[in-house]
Design a protein around this nucleic acid. Structure first.
Lengths: 117, 117
DNA sequence: GTTGATAATCGTCTATCGACGATGAACGAT
DNA sequence: ATCGTTCATCGTCGATAGACGATTATCAAC
């Protein structure tokens, strides 16, 4: 698992990869969409649109961003598209994020593992 | 701990608060700065600047964003400012993030707790 | 084949981001 | 009192984000 924190400081690619996925999450609307997708069978895009004070095109755009971030999968069946959460991707993001925060805060928790890994 | 996911779908303020802090993290440079701050006694701004291919003003701006997000604290002593990680804030962010992801993915892990809380 | 519904895409507009150089403020050293 | 250092702030610039309406494509229903 990498080496030292000093090395992490130099490693740009790793930080970029994580930052990119975080950026997909860092928007209230997208957080709400993810929550909605995780909560129900609400795979329909229109259903999401109906629950948000946003235009259809705007929601579609947010869904595209979540798609490109790999957090959501979409199956287009005819005119309608069914979106669903990629739970593996969400879990992987959670793990990577935890690992980063553990690396950042590892001086407090003492050991080399920290939190949950 | 709130109520149902359907309620979360409606709750904008909560999503906004988390999204705001995530946005502070969602930049490769800021991730690197945080890593550097967590790794060493590198509280000096100039030290960070010297390790990044960016102008001093740019780094200062990133530090300001991290400050406003509450992830970093800065003590100005004379001409130089000593930045250090707010480890409590980092941990709190990690917890909130975990809680969100648990809420999103709770259908897979069965129960109502999930992950680690 | 029309019509209606759904959703992606396009073009546009504004606001914000990210980077920079220049400047200014605060301090230590001489 | 004057430098040199350190850092924040300001103004500028180009690029991107986010929202919207309009348009287009695909399909079901009729």
């Amino acid at each position: 698992m990498k080496a030292m924190a000093a090395a992490d400081f130099k490693a740009n690619s790793e930080a970029s990869a994580l930052a990119e996925r975080l950026r997909a999450l860092a928007h209230p609307t997208r957080l709400r969409i993810l929550t909605a997708l995780g909560a129900s069978k609400t795979c329909q895009c229109g259903e999401i649109v109906r629950n948000l004070p946003l235009a259809q095109s705007t929601v579609s755009e947010h869904l595209r961003i979540l798609l490109e971030a790999g957090l959501v999968r979409g199956e287009t069946a005819g005119a309608r598209t069914c979106y669903c959460l990629d739970r593996n991707a969400v879990r992987k993001l959670a793990e990577d994020f935890d690992r980063l925060l553990a690396a950042i805060g590892r001086h407090e928790v003492a050991g080399g593992k920290a939190r949950r890994a």
